[in-house]
Design a protein around this nucleic acid. Structure first.
Lengths: 244, 244
DNA sequence: TAGATTGTTAATCGATTAACAATC
DNA sequence: TAGATTGTTAATCGATTAACAATC
């Protein structure tokens, strides 16, 4: 019955909290860049676009890293969060599908700076092989298994057209990848133990359109100038996981 | 106190449900393409990667569009969902920031096929002006206000580097855009009434890495081959909205 | 000590799920 | 009528929030 490892230091952190930790980390980095050494939960929450109660609750799952009456040491908290979310190690990543989107992903500097190293770009299209994208040569899709084994790749990114996505996922799983970020607009089937997160660009727009179409109705009623302060907005993609 | 319009036919649909409606719509289109005229909640749920109880609950917010003992008429349900999420009209969209990502977004065929028409590509970089991307000429960022007004643009996409994102958001809001899809890794401030959704590529990978780092511990315990069926995975980005 | 701010509790809210009565 | 499947209810679960005791 697959007993849990006994080394269970891992307090389990709620999914919603896990999804916000990278946001807090980014906010802390931004504060550190501005030479701010200490911050209150109120300040950090503002920088992260959440309310302070939620922030404190989230941080409480990690431990007690603040000082009552004072606040949080920016560098210390930053280190603790980075450690918690595995940001202190480097993760090798493969990208499969080097079309427009794959090209953009390969060129995206944010991955590297957050501990992800793109070790290979793969595409089934032979006309792309050998071409360099962001300084990395595109290689044949067939080499996936060898690359994953050799470089210990745990995370794969799928940016192929929808009809090819399931086959790519199957090959990734077969090769030993156990976390997949999927940009193809399809529901992937994967065995238990494999995590899939999906980024679906049209769906994001469709959700906006839904709310937009509802706004039209009440627009007239809002014309009497109501106070219009600014609100920090975060709507990170907090997606449910898959497969135990 | 901004009274609600009296034309309140809108049963209010939970956010989590709204985020899944586009997934159901896509599943129905796929069924229709395979000439399937009727489906049960069980079948549709499988195609959408959710369980059938959730699907039925979600659909119940729209109305009673099924037939007990029979199932759902694919075309009819498809139409009803499309109507509900505003997919029967066309939404003009502007994209600001035509770097690698903006280029990929402009070329993405999924937008057009889901009722979004890209009416303009804007960039502050003069060297891009006049260049065509996906058949659309890149224009100066300055023209934003004129374009939004002229084409009645409600939805804007931000794919500029992080430091420029807030300025772009401000200009969009000023011009009359009230829904923003933000790809820049920053927390945007917008006035109430403006919706922001955020797609944050590094954060998606960081969430995967978090779970991945926890998997390592229990790996050994899982070696005794447990049943490993397949599981449909959906982890759409179900993001909380912003600003009332 | 007085003031500030954390970490935690408890209440509330929203989402998920199983079960089943309604009904084709 | 018997079998199938929806739409809804009620229980459960997880996330958010306000409030405040603990404590620097």
């Amino acid at each position: 019955m697959t007993a849990r490892s006994t080394t269970d230091t891992t307090r389990d952190i709620p999914e919603a909290t896990v999804a916000r930790l990278p946001v807090y980390l980014r906010a802390l980095i931004s504060l550190a860049d501005r030479n701010i050494a200490v911050c209150s939960s109120e300040e950090l929450a503002a920088a992260a676009g959440v309310n302070s109660a939620k922030l404190r609750k989230d941080l409480s799952y990690l431990g007690s890293y603040g000082t009552r009456g004072v606040g949080y040491d920016v560098d210390y908290l930053r280190y603790q969060i980075a450690r918690e979310i595995g940001g202190t190690q480097e993760w090798p990543v493969v990208i499969v599908g080097i079309g427009n989107l794959g090209h953009a992903l390969a060129s995206f500097s944010g991955f590297r700076s957050r501990g992800f190293r793109i070790v290979a770009l793969l595409d089934a299209d032979a006309s792309l092989h050998g071409k360099e994208v962001a300084g990395i040569a595109v290689r044949p899709f067939d080499e996936l298994a060898a690359i994953v084994a050799e470089q210990q790749v745990a995370i794969g990114v799928i940016s192929v057209p929808a009809p090819a996505a399931q086959d790519v996922a199957d090959a990734m799983v077969q090769a030993g990848v156990s976390s997949i970020l999927n940009f193809a607009p399809v529901v992937l089937s994967v065995p238990p133990g494999v995590d899939v997160r999906k980024v679906d660009l049209s769906i994001e727009l469709q959700i906006l359109a839904y709310h937009e179409s509802r706004k039209a109705h009440t627009e007239a009623a809002d014309l009497d100038g109501m106070p219009s302060g600014r609100v920090n907005s975060v709507s990170g993609a907090a997606a449910p996981e898959v497969s135990a």
